[in-house]
Design a protein around this nucleic acid. Structure first.
Length: 490
RNA sequence: CGGGGCGUGGCCUAGUCCGGUUACGGCGCCUGGUUUGGGACCAGGAGAUCGCAGGUUCGAAUCCUGCCGCCCCGACCA
């Protein structure tokens, strides 16, 4: 483990790949494009999941679970949806294996062919709306606010740990409403939940906006999104929330009896965030020494490391640290006392820095004698010696400061790399420099395609808080009513 | 699907061009000892169908043929 990470500057992509593996977050599985999420990585995801789950419940949602397998015919019921996902579906065709006649191993039994092939869900709209059809009869059944935590499979050509894997974990909310306005309100509300989570817990500033038609979810009327900026100047879509109109209600014939006694199609939303958030979290804060975690999501907020010579001193110092650990635990902090005698303290320092533990407390014989303790913070890599008295409130304050400071630093980086341009030359230069580029666009798919082809940049979003400002499209010179945000993206 | 790279103890790797006894080294692991304020040191030890299948040869990690897998870079996507 004496290996040094590749620096971000020399090869950002390599830095990321090495960090994920070395910080013990995940590893490649033997199946192409899939990953094993290791216990430490999963602990971070569990934190995210727990917090989000509570946020969903606080906004009136309940959890349920729908099947992994979807009859192939369901997918084709909504035209845009099938168009969007058909190219990346895993298909189950058989249900049995048998020993090969020639003894060469095990083969698919051709006699066990499924009558209707099943697809492994790339998302669950179709099977859920097919089910909602039976759940919804009256306006009294609405709104229907359901979420599920699940795995999904999308057969992508190119994958990267957490950012894009063939199988990934996520949550998908699927709601049904009486009116269009209520559904739009729901989609926007969940976007706010995502934004609050990203900024308040991940310490990751996000832009809220609407996707252009090109970037819209297959089957949605509108796709709302939060977009984050990574340290290499590339944008990352961190969460999406869709207003689905009546598209799925139409496709699956989901009608309800209105207050007036008529029959109407319901209005729908869906919204999701995935293990991709892990990638966002890593790339937002981490440095060349390894992972940097915001305290609120860190599985371990404070690690305590004893420094000692001999068994007698070890017992004394570990005993003193145990007291500190107990005190911090009682105050509600996630704490680990590492009294493993087989690793030296220096090794532990490096290890917990690599793993992004926000605060480290170290105590040696000098501290024990003087009633002090060494406090190191991961984000700035600074150390100080403080009195043992009042350590709890000191740690509390420090953790809050780290959380705030990580957000501020990320926001400052985003702000300083966001540029507003009016000419094509400026546009190209800004893209080259990295970051968000605010520019006028004539509103057509053709122009967006053209720009993407020429520059690899896409419209990340049309900001919700964008100020109305007329101008001329940066590419075609046609009229534009608002600046949109471009960037190269993950 | 194109382009590139790689497959050798758990991990990284030398050896492959130019075939030759027992497959180099490091990390990690086990045992014992000395150590301990930033990834300790010494001694001993365990651990390998050299990706798979054929072929050439007295002899293959090395040469030939075929296959499989993974990673990276591009076209599709969260």
């Amino acid at each position: 483990m004496a290996t040094k990470l590749t620096s971000r500057e020399s090869d950002y992509s390599k830095w990321y790949n090495e960090l994920v593996v070395q910080a013990d977050l995940a590893q490649h599985s033997d199946v192409k494009g899939c990953m094993v999420i290791k216990p430490y990585g999963f602990a971070i995801w569990e934190r995210m999941k727990d917090v989000l789950d509570q946020m969903f419940k606080d906004t009136g949602h309940v959890n349920a679970y729908f099947p992994l397998f979807i009859p192939k015919s369901y997918l084709s019921k909504e035209a845009a949806h099938v168009e969007g996902f058909a190219k990346e579906c895993a298909v189950v065709t058989h249900y049995r294996l048998k020993n090969a006649e020639d003894g060469s191993g095990i083969v698919v039994d051709p006699d066990a062919k499924l009558e209707e092939e099943l697809i492994v869900r790339p998302t669950s709209e179709t099977i859920i709306w097919n089910t909602y059809k039976d759940w919804i009869q009256s306006y009294r059944d609405l709104p229907l606010l359901v979420n599920q935590w699940a795995n999904v499979v999308r057969w992508e050509m190119r994958t990267r740990l957490f950012l894009r894997t063939t199988e990934f974990l996520w949550q998908e909310g699927h709601t049904a409403h009486e009116t269009s306005d209520q559904a739009v309100e729901e989609a926007r509300k969940m976007l706010e939940v995502y934004a609050d989570f990203a900024e308040g817990w991940m310490a990751m500033p996000v832009l809220k906006g609407v996707k252009s038609a090109n970037e819209r979810f297959a089957g949605a009327v509108d796709t709302y999104c939060i977009e984050a900026m990574m340290q290499d100047g590339k944008a990352l879509q961190a969460g999406t929330s869709h207003f689905l109109g009546q598209n799925f209600a139409k496709a699956f014939d989901v009608k309800f009896a209105t207050r007036e006694g008529g029959q109407e199609l319901v209005w729908a939303t869906s919204w999701g965030v995935s293990t991709r958030l892990m990638g966002a979290l890593i790339m937002t804060h981490s440095d060349d020494a390894g992972l940097v975690l915001p305290p609120k999501l860190a599985p371990i907020e404070v690690v305590l490391v004893p420094i000692y010579k001999g068994e007698e001193q070890m017992a004394e110092i570990v005993g003193a640290l145990q007291g500190v650990a107990d005190q911090l635990k009682a105050a509600g902090f996630r704490v680990k006392l590492d009294d493993d005698d087989s690793k030296r303290s220096g090794w532990k320092f490096a290890e917990y820095e690599l793993k992004g533990v926000p605060v480290r407390l170290a105590m040696g014989p000098r501290d024990l004698a003087g009633g002090t303790i060494e406090v190191a913070r991961r984000d700035t890599r600074s150390k100080e010696i403080v009195p043992m008295d009042g350590i709890q409130s000191h740690v509390k304050g420090l953790l809050e400061e780290i959380q705030t400071s990580l957000f501020d630093r990320a926001e400052e980086r985003r702000t300083s790399t966001t540029t507003s341009v009016d000419t094509w030359e400026e546009f190209l230069a800004a893209l080259e420099a990295g970051g968000f580029v605010e520019a006028h666009w004539d509103g057509t798919s053709e122009t967006e395609d053209l720009i993407k082809k020429e520059t690899k940049a896409t419209i990340r979003c049309i900001p919700l808080e964008g100020n109305e400002e007329t101008g001329k499209c940066v590419r075609t010179g046609a009229d534009s009513s608002q600046r949109v945000v471009f960037a190269r993206a993950y």
